[in-house]
Design a protein around this nucleic acid. Structure first.
Lengths: 154, 154
DNA sequence: TATAGGATTGACGTAAACGTAAAAGGTGCG
DNA sequence: CGCACCTTTTACGTTTACGTCAATCCTATA
């Protein structure tokens, strides 16, 4: 049972049915495509966030996995933990309206948004304090650098 | 050689020379005064950031230690690691102009400021993306909640 | 066939700043 | 005297998301 190759841009050595709509990519290509490492993909799988098919022991990712990975990366980008992402994804049911999933996502998002805003406030605060301190330090340096005598400027 | 107690507000059971300008406080009071835990104070000491005196095995903090702690907390607030803080503090020399210390502090501060600004940009980005996603999810919920029939409102 | 690429499963390492027992000692008070 | 309260040192645990080997395997190609 051999498998698959990406339609066009394939530096692959595997055989593939270039006909089927299903595109299977192996971990290397998947990683490049989304700018993550192999380790990351395996880690996500280990955490139950991805479930690629297998050809023997070789992982094969489909567009379904790609969609999931996109969601994971979006979640990470907005600051969700992988746990949160998993919780939300686990509620996905292709046969239903996913109302519960959407509500959970919205609920978590509101909380996350609040956290982000709080963080931004903290950072702004930090920037302010740091700028102040820098002014002080600059002034101290000027005083220490200036001629120790109280003479007029050159 | 017994010791010390805070001038006024002392629930301390120790004797103290209420006369000297030196105020010695023990770890508990120090912690309360600056809103940190005992563990934190010991940790900072272990990392070489603090050096309280001792009465036997009991730590005694003076205003010098308080000043240092203030600096540490300010550093933490603006996002410096304890390592950075230590590096800067280690350059302090009470007998000199501390030009090197000030320059190092300024240098580190500039880098830290850049980091903070980058972080703020990331957070703003995240807030934007998250807000977008939330709009989408809200819309999906509305569609799923609306009457499945194309009838008029009740 | 030798070689260069991928791929696999472990499994320990990392970073930062403490948290959290655990076991024990000193002290004044009622 | 016993209890409550403060302090000490030692040392493993926590959190998150992977990084970094290590040892193997498979395979197409020159």
């Amino acid at each position: 049972m051999k498998l698959v190759s990406p339609g066009e841009a394939a530096a692959n050595t595997n055989d593939i049915p270039a006909e089927a709509g299903e595109e299977f990519v192996r971990i290397g290509e998947m990683a490049k495509k989304y700018g993550v490492t192999l380790r990351t993909l395996r880690f996500y799988e280990d955490k139950g966030l991805l479930n690629p098919h297998r050809d023997g022991s070789t992982r094969l990712y489909t567009r379904r996995d790609k969609a999931r990975l996109k969601l994971i990366l979006l979640g990470r980008k907005v600051g969700f933990s992988l746990r949160d992402v998993k919780q939300m994804m686990d509620l996905y049911d292709p046969t239903g309206t996913n109302t519960k999933q959407l509500r959970l996502a919205l609920d978590k998002s509101e909380k996350q948004l609040a956290r982000l805003q709080k963080q931004r406030a903290l950072i702004d605060d930090a920037i302010g304090e740091l700028s102040n301190s820098m002014s002080v330090v600059r002034q101290m340096l000027i005083e220490r650098t200036a001629a120790p005598q109280a003479s007029a400027a050159g």
